[in-house]
């Protein structure tokens, strides 16, 4: 079973590489945000998978945190773009 988890994880990492390229290449700011956001979601699943690879279910708690963090960061970035300020 763990081989399958491993393969999935590797596929996710490869996807992350592609997204990283997009984040760097742009061309607009929104592409960067989009790509980073997507990497964020990938990491959430990735954490869960790691939990299964190493047999520790506590990792799922962390997936929740990841989800929240990515969300809030994205909101902050958007607010900055829309309003030009954070407060």
């Amino acid at each position: 079973m763990s081989t399958i988890y491993l393969i999935t994880a590797v596929v996710l990492i490869v996807g992350a590489f592609m997204l990283l390229y997009r984040a760097l290449a742009g061309p607009t700011v929104y592409d960067t945000i989009l790509a980073t956001n997507a990497i964020g979601t990938k990491t959430i699943v990735f954490v869960t998978l790691l939990g299964y690879i190493s047999g520790r279910t506590e990792f799922i708690d962390m997936a929740i945190i990841y989800a929240l963090i990515t969300f809030i960061t994205t909101i902050a970035i958007l607010k900055y773009i829309e309003k030009g300020r954070l407060d």
């Binding site: 929104y30 945000i33 989009l34 956001n37 979601t41 959430i44 869960t48 279910t57 799922i60 708690d61 997936a63 929740i64 989800a67 929240l68 990515t70 969300f71 994205t74 909101i75 958007l78």
Partner: peptide
């Protein structure tokens, strides 16, 4: 917990996409 993560993702990811 897994379902919860999935649920959060289902809410949060589209929200973020929408906002972008």
């Amino acid at each position: 917990k897994l379902m919860m993560v999935a649920f959060i993702l289902l809410i949060v990811a589209p929200t973020a996409t929408f906002a972008i």
